[in-house]
Amino acid sequence: WKVTVKGVEYTFDNPEEAKKFAEELAKKKGGQIHYKDGEFQVH
């Protein structure tokens, strides 16, 4: 499971962890999460 933040990729074994990480980042940066092709992208 991948989380991509401004072109930087983070990989997680667990989808729950990936989702949590993406949500935290989106909150911090005031961005939005897009889920696409099996990965979370924070913009």
Rank of each mutant, 00 (worst) to 15 (best):
residue 1 W to E: 03
residue 1 W to N: 09
residue 1 W to F: 11
residue 1 W to M: 09
residue 1 W to D: 03
residue 1 W to Y: 11
residue 2 K to L: 09
residue 2 K to M: 06
residue 2 K to R: 10
residue 3 V to Q: 00
residue 3 V to N: 00
residue 3 V to W: 00
residue 3 V to L: 01
residue 4 T to L: 08
residue 4 T to A: 02
residue 4 T to C: 11
residue 4 T to N: 05
residue 4 T to G: 01
residue 4 T to F: 04
residue 5 V to K: 00
residue 5 V to G: 03
residue 5 V to Y: 15
residue 5 V to Q: 02
residue 5 V to M: 13
residue 5 V to E: 12
residue 5 V to I: 14
residue 6 K to P: 05
residue 6 K to C: 15
residue 6 K to E: 15
residue 6 K to H: 15
residue 7 G to C: 08
residue 7 G to M: 02
residue 7 G to S: 04
residue 8 V to Y: 10
residue 8 V to H: 11
residue 8 V to G: 05
residue 8 V to Q: 12
residue 9 E to K: 05
residue 9 E to P: 02
residue 9 E to H: 06
residue 9 E to F: 06
residue 9 E to D: 06
residue 9 E to S: 13
residue 9 E to R: 04
residue 9 E to G: 02
residue 9 E to N: 03
residue 10 Y to V: 02
residue 10 Y to G: 00
residue 10 Y to K: 02
residue 10 Y to Q: 01
residue 11 T to K: 12
residue 11 T to C: 14
residue 11 T to Q: 12
residue 11 T to P: 07
residue 11 T to H: 15
residue 11 T to N: 12
residue 11 T to V: 14
residue 12 F to Q: 00
residue 12 F to H: 00
residue 12 F to L: 00
residue 13 D to C: 11
residue 13 D to I: 05
residue 13 D to K: 07
residue 13 D to N: 11
residue 13 D to M: 06
residue 14 N to F: 05
residue 14 N to S: 13
residue 14 N to G: 08
residue 14 N to V: 02
residue 14 N to I: 02
residue 14 N to L: 05
residue 15 P to I: 15
residue 15 P to F: 15
residue 15 P to E: 14
residue 15 P to C: 15
residue 15 P to L: 15
residue 16 E to D: 13
residue 16 E to P: 01
residue 16 E to L: 12
residue 16 E to Q: 10
residue 16 E to N: 10
residue 16 E to T: 11
residue 16 E to Y: 12
residue 16 E to W: 14
residue 16 E to K: 09
residue 16 E to I: 12
residue 17 E to F: 04
residue 17 E to S: 11
residue 17 E to R: 04
residue 17 E to M: 07
residue 17 E to C: 09
residue 17 E to I: 06
residue 18 A to D: 00
residue 18 A to W: 03
residue 18 A to N: 00
residue 18 A to R: 01
residue 18 A to Y: 04
residue 18 A to M: 04
residue 18 A to V: 01
residue 19 K to W: 13
residue 19 K to T: 05
residue 19 K to E: 07
residue 19 K to P: 00
residue 19 K to M: 12
residue 19 K to F: 13
residue 19 K to V: 07
residue 20 K to Y: 07
residue 20 K to P: 00
residue 20 K to E: 10
residue 20 K to N: 10
residue 20 K to R: 12
residue 20 K to L: 10
residue 21 F to C: 12
residue 21 F to D: 00
residue 21 F to H: 01
residue 21 F to R: 01
residue 21 F to G: 00
residue 21 F to E: 00
residue 22 A to E: 03
residue 22 A to I: 08
residue 22 A to K: 02
residue 22 A to L: 07
residue 22 A to W: 03
residue 23 E to D: 06
residue 23 E to Q: 10
residue 23 E to F: 07
residue 23 E to R: 03
residue 24 E to A: 10
residue 24 E to V: 08
residue 24 E to R: 08
residue 24 E to N: 09
residue 24 E to D: 12
residue 25 L to F: 09
residue 25 L to N: 05
residue 25 L to A: 10
residue 25 L to H: 07
residue 25 L to C: 15
residue 25 L to G: 02
residue 26 A to M: 08
residue 26 A to I: 14
residue 26 A to E: 04
residue 26 A to D: 03
residue 26 A to Q: 07
residue 26 A to W: 04
residue 26 A to L: 11
residue 26 A to C: 13
residue 26 A to Y: 04
residue 26 A to F: 03
residue 27 K to W: 06
residue 27 K to P: 02
residue 27 K to A: 13
residue 27 K to T: 11
residue 27 K to G: 09
residue 27 K to H: 10
residue 27 K to C: 14
residue 27 K to R: 12
residue 27 K to V: 09
residue 27 K to M: 11
residue 28 K to P: 06
residue 28 K to V: 12
residue 28 K to L: 14
residue 28 K to T: 11
residue 28 K to H: 10
residue 28 K to E: 14
residue 29 K to P: 09
residue 29 K to L: 15
residue 29 K to R: 11
residue 29 K to D: 15
residue 29 K to M: 15
residue 30 G to F: 06
residue 30 G to M: 08
residue 30 G to A: 07
residue 30 G to K: 08
residue 30 G to H: 09
residue 30 G to S: 06
residue 30 G to D: 08
residue 31 G to Q: 06
residue 31 G to D: 06
residue 31 G to T: 07
residue 31 G to K: 03
residue 32 Q to A: 10
residue 32 Q to D: 13
residue 32 Q to S: 13
residue 32 Q to V: 14
residue 32 Q to L: 10
residue 33 I to G: 04
residue 33 I to N: 06
residue 33 I to R: 02
residue 33 I to A: 03
residue 33 I to S: 04
residue 33 I to F: 06
residue 33 I to E: 05
residue 33 I to W: 06
residue 33 I to Q: 03
residue 34 H to F: 12
residue 34 H to V: 13
residue 34 H to P: 02
residue 34 H to N: 09
residue 34 H to S: 13
residue 34 H to Y: 13
residue 34 H to E: 12
residue 35 Y to G: 07
residue 35 Y to Q: 09
residue 35 Y to A: 07
residue 35 Y to K: 07
residue 35 Y to N: 07
residue 35 Y to R: 06
residue 35 Y to V: 10
residue 36 K to L: 13
residue 36 K to R: 10
residue 36 K to D: 09
residue 36 K to G: 10
residue 37 D to C: 09
residue 37 D to F: 01
residue 37 D to M: 00
residue 37 D to G: 01
residue 37 D to I: 01
residue 37 D to N: 03
residue 38 G to V: 03
residue 38 G to S: 06
residue 38 G to N: 12
residue 38 G to R: 12
residue 38 G to K: 12
residue 38 G to W: 06
residue 38 G to A: 04
residue 38 G to L: 06
residue 38 G to D: 04
residue 39 E to S: 08
residue 39 E to I: 13
residue 39 E to N: 09
residue 39 E to Q: 07
residue 39 E to V: 12
residue 39 E to W: 08
residue 39 E to M: 07
residue 39 E to R: 04
residue 40 F to K: 03
residue 40 F to C: 07
residue 40 F to M: 06
residue 40 F to A: 03
residue 40 F to D: 04
residue 40 F to V: 05
residue 40 F to S: 03
residue 40 F to I: 11
residue 40 F to T: 03
residue 41 Q to N: 07
residue 41 Q to Y: 09
residue 41 Q to P: 06
residue 41 Q to D: 06
residue 41 Q to M: 12
residue 41 Q to K: 07
residue 41 Q to S: 09
residue 41 Q to W: 09
residue 42 V to M: 04
residue 42 V to Q: 05
residue 42 V to W: 08
residue 42 V to S: 04
residue 42 V to T: 04
residue 42 V to I: 14
residue 42 V to G: 03
residue 42 V to P: 06
residue 42 V to N: 03
residue 42 V to E: 04
residue 42 V to F: 04
residue 43 H to G: 09
residue 43 H to S: 13
residue 43 H to I: 15
residue 43 H to Y: 08
residue 43 H to F: 09
residue 43 H to L: 14
residue 43 H to R: 10
